[in-house]
Design a protein around this nucleic acid. Structure first.
Lengths: 159, 159
DNA sequence: GTGAGATAGTTGCATTTGAGACTATATCAA
DNA sequence: TTGATATAGTCTCAAATGCAACTATCTCAC
């Protein structure tokens, strides 16, 4: 009889690990800043990419459902963390960018988030990290999760 | 100004990867067998561990919330995939095990699931897989996700 | 024994989420 | 132009989920 040990089943292990890491990280932005996961993803996308970009671009980058991103953007607008301007060339879309408040929040959060990442990875040697990075890269490419697939939203949204 | 590239941020990468793998796998059991993720976890736990065990044991193994497991068990009972008997020694708990139907389902599903896993890992060499396995193991131990923490439910539930 | 605290499992409630319909706009071909 | 199709973003609805309260039972100290 064929058997499957969940503890050795890679999909399960990765899922469980992801959930645990998520929980460890989200306490940082949820408790301290009142930001939830979708909001954090929007913030991180806009903050990294200094140019304005569309909600659709965030959807493509983060692989998060568009209704989820839409709601996150609404919340961030209400909190004045993000602002948006209609694109004159294409009036279906809006160019999103961080406000001064949003930028300040981003700059305050990032070092904390990076520190948390380091805490989580602290059980791995430099060589291990390289190796993990390589494995993730291969899996991402194989599953079509690569950056190359992401449209250059800036060209449209930016000007 | 400190920046953080989501695409290089390990927690995000692992999360996105997990979501993608989950989606790829769940189509197998959801579309074909009408089983959802929590139900699959119960099924996999009971099928692997041939002895009866408690819902709490499944909770510990899978790190899934007990209300989620409770509902999954209810569904599996209704579908006659799982059966349970009250433990005479401790009448708070029930010993869960697969029915004949459940065992047949398990045996049909497992090879498919293993094949899916192999498909996903097919982008990795044997050496890569060992390496990935080692990385996951280190992270799991570091985050206290290790099997060692799982109680031997069989002693109580089994007899 | 008795009472305090722990544990297994269920359930109600509020939140989150994804699917998909919907509006408005853009593109492109005839 | 016009009509067909595609896309950005919002909204409604239903399903999934976690939390916390609850019941029933067990354990253990006194």
């Amino acid at each position: 009889m064929p058997k499957l040990d969940l503890f050795q089943f890679t999909p399960f292990r990765i899922n469980r690990l992801a959930a645990e890491i998520s929980a460890a990280l989200s306490s940082e932005y949820r408790d301290r800043y009142g930001i939830d996961i979708p909001e954090w993803r929007v913030l991180a996308t806009l903050g990294f990419r200094q140019e304005p970009c569309t909600a659709q671009y965030v959807v493509d980058c983060t692989r998060t459902h568009k209704s989820t991103i839409s709601r996150a953007v609404t919340n961030l607008l209400r909190q004045r963390i993000v602002e948006r301007v209609e694109n004159e060339q294409d009036r279906r879309e809006f160019a999103l960018q961080l406000t001064a408040k949003g930028t300040a929040l981003y700059e305050e959060m990032i070092p904390r988030m990076l520190r948390r990442e380091q805490d989580i990875l602290s059980c791995l040697s430099a060589r291990d990290r390289k190796s993990l990075d390589a494995m993730l890269g291969k899996l991402e490419r194989s599953l079509d999760l690569v950056q190359g697939k992401i449209p250059q939203a800036s060209r449209k949204a930016g000007n």
